[in-house]
Write a protein that binds this DNA or RNA. Structure first.
Lengths: 135, 135
DNA sequence: GCTGGCGTTGACGCCAGGGGGAAGGTTTAC
DNA sequence: GTAAACCTTCCCCCTGGCGTCAACGCCAGC
């Protein structure tokens, strides 16, 4: 299988595959004409990479999973190194979520304060409509 | 006040201040010798920028706040444009938090599955210790 | 032998928010 | 007087994950 076919079957681009090879993440054998040659196992590795990327893993973080598969294990997360990445990622996610929730609360507070300030200002500058209504 | 003093008082760097000026975010008057000259109002603007940055706002997103202050309003968020940025940011934060929570759940699921698979494999390959204990 | 569609390498661009350093002028402190 | 600490502009570097050329090679069909 050549690079274009692999890219299409994995839902990525040839550019990304060359980049992965450059990182040593997904090295390719070469055909006689210099073209990259891939097989089904490479497709499996690539799918693992893409799945982890969808989870927000960086490419370097997918490396243990890829090497685990390449070592013959049935799943990319069958190795301790992969489990460790999972654990670290869960910690990062928790920290990130907590930080975002904190920021969200602070921004909401600022927003509410600003809206109240605006309404109070409007109430002072613009005479209340109810007086017109009364007439 | 010169750039070094302003930077120190606002807890940032001279490099950042030159960058903000380059963006037109915080233009500086010039002294006779060409040095940038700032006053207390600039410090106020800069503090506003830094606060919003701590909230994760991009520099462009702080622009409405800065211009609002520069227009003479008491707070950076006294203007409709600033409130709109708040609103948009709250939406982004909510979307981001929801996505991260979803990812967290998926990663946790993968992790649990991998750990169970590992334990089952270990139970098969390694004969239970209890037999030794029995002897 | 020519066109078209693959493939190859390499290099630059992008986004944000600057960092680092050079080469030179200014001000201040001892 | 001179050294340190400022200041100026200019330009390249970094991260991540590629996108987008440019310039060229390989191969099939007509």
């Amino acid at each position: 299988m050549r690079i274009g076919e692999l890219a299409e079957r994995a839902g990525t681009t040839t550019r990304a595959l060359r980049y992965y090879e450059q990182l040593g993440l997904l090295p390719a054998r070469r055909a006689g004409n210099g073209y990259r040659a891939y097989d089904e196992a490479d497709l499996r590795l690539l799918r693992e990479i893409r799945m982890l990327q969808d989870f927000g893993f960086g490419l370097e973080e997918t490396r243990p999973f890829v090497e685990c598969l390449r070592a013959g294990h049935p799943e990319g997360d069958s190795c301790p190194a992969s489990l460790e990445v999972y654990r670290r990622k869960l910690g990062e996610l928790d920290a990130c979520i907590a930080r975002l929730q904190d920021v969200r609360a602070q921004v909401a507070e600022q927003f509410d304060r600003a809206v109240r300030a605006r309404d109070e200002l409007a109430a002072v500058e613009e005479p209340p409509l109810c007086e017109l209504v009364k007439e």
